[in-house]
């Protein structure tokens, strides 16, 4: 009798905060790999681990919700500490699309350059250098008949004397498995633009994508091809990279799903001599990730 009363009291105490946080989702992805890189010793390395919280709350405005999200790096390889933040933003979402302010993903990556960032190992994202941005005000349109657009303004008082330091516009169009995307990133101070165009095609177990980037600041035009083929719980992936100035390389990877939320991979990354002169390195990487 007493026991059940205590249980009831405990349940009551727990229920209150749970109701208050009903919409918050705690999520994460821990990714660790072992890397054998040319000219380096064997290394256990973190592979973009993150833990985050996200959710939405009612605004009282019909059909409009306030959203929030925070996401932090976790150094799984050494120290196990929470590292720098990845994302932190608030915003409003509804039939009009989504407007958010804070540190968030750039549409340059999510609409365009992410199309070829499909591998897990060292060969992935070889030409991508824009991922997330701070000081951002972003608007992403709803999907309209396969079309979607986005605009981001980056305003940082500490940067370089402009009200808006950089703009990022992006658009993509999807139909029947095909997706094409294009994005422009302009730096108001330096006048150095980055342009990216990608195309992807997905059909059942097959996925292929191509990406082209023109980076004015670095004065390079780079392109990349990536593809994957899935069978059972196994996926074979490959990418080919042209770094410009005769540098090129390729990656080959196999992934094995272990249930729905974890997987292992083995990746081979090979670059030619010209790419090695740019600081790229051959590597074999083997890793595991668990999502929750």
């Amino acid at each position: 009798m007493k026991k059940s009363l205590i249980a009831l009291a405990v349940a009551g105490a727990l229920a209150a905060p749970m109701v208050a946080q009903a919409d918050a989702t705690l999520y994460g992805s821990l990714r660790v790999m072992v890397v054998d890189q040319e000219d380096s010793e064997l290394n256990v390395a973190d592979n973009s681990s993150r833990i985050g919280i996200k959710g939405s709350v009612d605004t009282g405005i019909d059909g409009v919700k306030a959203i929030y999200r925070g996401e932090w790096k976790v150094n799984t390889a050494d120290g196990a500490d929470f590292g720098a933040g990845r994302l932190a933003y608030v915003g409003l979402t509804g039939g009009f699309g989504t407007a958010a302010i804070g540190q968030q993903w750039t549409p340059y990556y999510t609409f365009v350059t992410g199309a070829t960032d499909i591998l897990d190992g060292k060969s992935t994202a070889p030409t991508q250098d824009v991922f997330r941005t701070g000081n951002a005000i972003a608007y992403v349109s709803p999907e309209m008949g396969g079309f979607q657009g986005a605009l981001v303004a980056i305003a940082d008082d500490n940067a370089n004397g402009e009200d808006v330091d950089a703009y990022n516009v992006a658009a993509k169009y999807s139909v029947a498995g095909f997706t094409v995307g294009a994005s422009l990133l302009t730096d108001e101070a330096s006048d150095n633009d980055m342009t990216a165009v990608s195309a992807a095609y997905a059909a059942g177990p097959l996925y292929v994508a191509a990406l082209y980037q023109d980076k004015e600041a670095a004065d390079v035009k780079q392109w990349e091809l990536a593809g994957s083929y899935a069978f059972g719980d196994t996926k074979v992936l490959a990418n080919y990279i042209d770094f410009d100035n005769d540098g090129n390389g390729f990656g080959l990877e196999v992934q094995q799903k272990l249930g729905k939320q974890s997987r292992v991979f083995a990746n081979i990354y090979e670059v030619n001599d010209d790419a090695e002169d740019m600081g790229k390195k051959d590597a074999i990487s083997v890793g595991m990730r668990v999502d929750f």
Partner: peptide, 29 residues
């Protein structure tokens, strides 16, 4: 598909299978 299976077997067995001594690919399906 057979090529993809063999490639996956080699890559998993050579790495996770410690140079091929363990056949980890077969239990993976």
């Amino acid at each position: 598909e057979a090529s993809a299976i063999s490639l996956s077997r080699i890559m998993f067995n050579t790495t996770f299978g410690l140079g091929g001594v363990l056949d980890v690919a077969t239990p993976m399906g």
